[in-house]
């Protein structure tokens, strides 16, 4: 079984679990696959920027994120599920983001 088939199988499993009515067509599957690869690739490239803090930390982070990404492979269906239009989801992430931003600005700078 090739890598492509593995990913499509996982996407189907997740869609069945989420009880989505729409069928898994070729277009949906390949779109999901592209999104998945884009996400992981940009994440890994973005992590390289940690080299500005410390090179060894960057290597460790890349390895860790690569392993996590491989283990959790179809991330995109889950991520899409999280970014749905439910207001409860939206407000949860909004308040989370508020907390993270304030914490980062407040403590991230006081220790500079």
């Amino acid at each position: 079984m090739s890598f492509y088939d593995v990913i499509i199988k996982r996407i189907r499993e997740i869609q069945e679990k989420a009880e989505e009515e729409e069928p898994v067509t070729n277009v949906t599957a390949s779109a999901m696959l592209t999104a998945e690869l884009t996400l992981i690739a940009s994440l890994l490239i973005a992590v390289v920027m940690i080299r500005l803090i410390h090179p060894i930390l960057m290597i460790i982070m890349i390895i860790v994120i690569f392993i996590i990404a491989l283990m959790a492979m179809p991330i995109m269906p889950k991520l899409r599920q999280e970014q749905n239009d439910s207001f409860n989801n939206m407000i949860f992430y909004v308040i989370m983001a508020l907390g993270i931003i304030i914490a980062l600005f407040y403590w991230g700078n006081l220790n500079v």
Binding site: T28, M32, T38, L43, R80
Partner: peptide, 24 residues
């Protein structure tokens, strides 16, 4: 200095999440 880092971080997130969500 953290202002610029935060702007870049949020923008990266917007790019990646926006475009990957657009495909699907």
């Amino acid at each position: 200095p953290f202002t610029k880092t935060a702007i870049i971080g949020i923008s990266l997130l917007a790019m990646v999440l926006g475009i990957t969500m657009a495909i699907v």
